[in-house]
Design a protein around this nucleic acid. Structure first.
Lengths: 341, 341
DNA sequence: TCCAGAAATGTTAGCGCTAACATCTTTGGC
DNA sequence: GCCAAAGATGTTAGCGCTAACATTTCTGGA
């Protein structure tokens, strides 16, 4: 910076002012400085800046340690929004999905001196750790069902899981289904619990029967295991006529298991997924599902964090933002046999 | 740090020594300092440390701006390895996959003062930009076919694409296929070109016919579009008996298109993918594919970067590490009709 | 017992930047 | 043409840490 200053014939402070867009700099001086910067290929030292300002212009993202579709895309959305706002992004992913792992990953971010943290790990344990951590930086949690209340330093953002689950369930009921199963997603995932809760509620509202299956995880393998049970139940004459899977991969496993048993989807049983994974339109049959606005969710999280940092009140409700997913009807759903006969 | 020093009754320098594991500190002093740190909940300021040492202990990852299976998992592997070595990780993803976008994302990392960069963006343009950038930090590029030679500050790591492509092609030939098509992946992706090149070479070695189809991208939708052409060609009696798709999603689209046209896989035509996406075992039929060691690739990249930073020579060959993918045979491949009759 | 050398600790300076204040130039109204 | 206020620039100090050197304390052999 001193070099730039001497080339431009000004003091280093003036260079700093130009760099920080301070108002009181004459236009020709600014140009001279800018030119000197260009000429020398000067880049400001971020560490020194951070030391002097006590801000790192870095945000941390705490995320799950796998390539799950939802979280991965949310992170991408955040990353892009953060860069646009001039922030750097540091990612810390959970090695283990328990409290200790969360603490570790969180500590890693705090050690780094991030200016804010966004949590994209919709797990009950993680949310708890974060809420209790009382960090001294603003935190935005992407979660559909927060345990704590938002504060001056903690805010929530979500895609409305209940809305999506309700849309699916009501749609199936409208088609005429009266035995609607749900495959609950991985244990402790907040979204899994939310989808299940709302499915159950809609069922009760309409006095429709439901049966609950539980998947070990979010993958097709987990869905396949459940699918074999479902097929057994159908063969025994007490199976559902429609199955709402907690996500698309589970639905894929389901489709596969049903196909193996010679069951036709949607003729014998309807299947619905959740997330609208890129491939789901090409499953056999094409999957009816719920599209979640992950990219937008990431952007919302980032703007909520900016608002927090700026000390803005940020809305009255429980959530800084609630985005609505969208039901995508494809070929894996149809009225049940009974209704068609 | 001054507070810690006074609580422990030592100078701030001694505290620094304890923190940095310097040898010449008496055991009881060390304990006293550690205790004071604990008591005060002191965390070292990273910006100050970076300023004093001229090292940020942060590495940057330059990656593609989407949730592609391969890159995403490689990044995860890097992230985990980096944390284990005490590095922080900053991610910068490509907004646009052209030279300008790459320059931008790279600049973002450099501005941050990272100690090293790993590039997980197997695109020709990106590789070029990186190789020509002449940064003053070590760089590791995850790419199967580097344009430049490795230097003191530039090293390559890859999963051996040719090995995988060769395994697939030879396997199909062994099954008896004599018309083996390849669906080339997204343009400008190095891996797509590598797979294509090797497929072509093996075909020539065995004097087997091949036809090349081109997918717009890596998605099932792209595979579907190609699949319709393939089905047309088969219907016209001049189609392939086996199709090697550049990745699993393309293969899924292919499967879907063939299914729509009433073609049986593998009876009428065999299909092979690449990557071994988590779901591929549950496609209909279960997909024969090539498993890539993405996690290990990430770890290798990180250790190559560490070696570079430490100024170690790092191997004689062109690559600091070359990992072998593995052929996974499932149900989507079989001998061609002619061979079975 | 004494002293050299090693081990342990303290002191000083400086990393590159920005905030705060000090100083020098303008500008515009009388 | 002069002066006050605003605008532009310069000077100084300090952010929290580590490296380098300075000093003190210990150790063991003559």
């Amino acid at each position: 910076m001193a070099d730039v200053a001497s080339v431009a014939g000004v003091s280093h402070q003036t260079v700093s002012r130009v760099l920080n867009d301070h108002p009181n700099v004459r236009e020709d001086t600014r140009q001279r400085v800018l030119q000197a910067i260009e000429q020398l290929g000067y880049r400001r030292n971020r560490a020194a800046r951070a030391l002097a300002t006590a801000r790192t212009s870095t945000i941390g993202i705490l995320t799950v340690g796998n390539s799950n579709f939802g979280p991965a895309n949310t992170v991408l959305g955040i990353e892009s929004a953060a860069r646009a706002e001039g922030y750097f992004v540091s990612v810390s992913s959970l090695e283990a999905s328990d409290a200790a792992g969360a603490q570790l990953a969180l500590g890693h971010l705090v050690d780094q001196g991030v200016d804010g943290i966004i949590v994209v790990a919709p797990l009950a344990e993680v949310a708890q750790v974060v809420e209790r951590a009382s960090l001294n930086v603003p935190v935005v949690v992407v979660a559909a069902n927060p345990l704590a209340e938002p504060t001056d330093a903690l805010r929530y953002v979500c895609a409305d899981q209940r809305f999506g689950a309700r849309a699916v369930t009501e749609y199936l009921i409208e088609l005429g289904h009266r035995r609607i199963a749900h495959v609950v997603g991985q244990e402790n995932w907040i979204d899994a619990a939310e989808r299940r809760t709302e499915w159950r509620r809609v069922l009760e509202e309409h006095a429709v029967q439901g049966r609950e299956y539980r998947a070990e995880g979010w993958s097709a393998a987990d869905g396949y295991a459940v699918g074999r049970q479902v097929a057994d139940d159908i063969a025994a004459g007490q199976g559902p006529t429609a199955v709402f899977a907690a996500n698309d991969y589970i639905a894929l496993g389901l489709l596969r298991a049903l196909w193996e048993r010679g069951l036709q989807v949607p003729e014998d049983v309807s299947v619905v997924g959740f997330d609208d994974v890129e491939s789901s339109a090409f499953y056999i049959p094409a999957l009816t599902t719920v599209r979640q606005p992950f990219g937008a969710l990431g952007k919302s999280a980032m703007s909520a964090l900016s608002a927090l940092s700026a000390g803005e009140p940020g809305g009255e409700g429980r959530f800084a933002a609630t985005l609505e997913p969208e039901l995508i009807v494809r070929a894996s759903t149809a009225p049940p046999r009974a209704a068609r006969d």
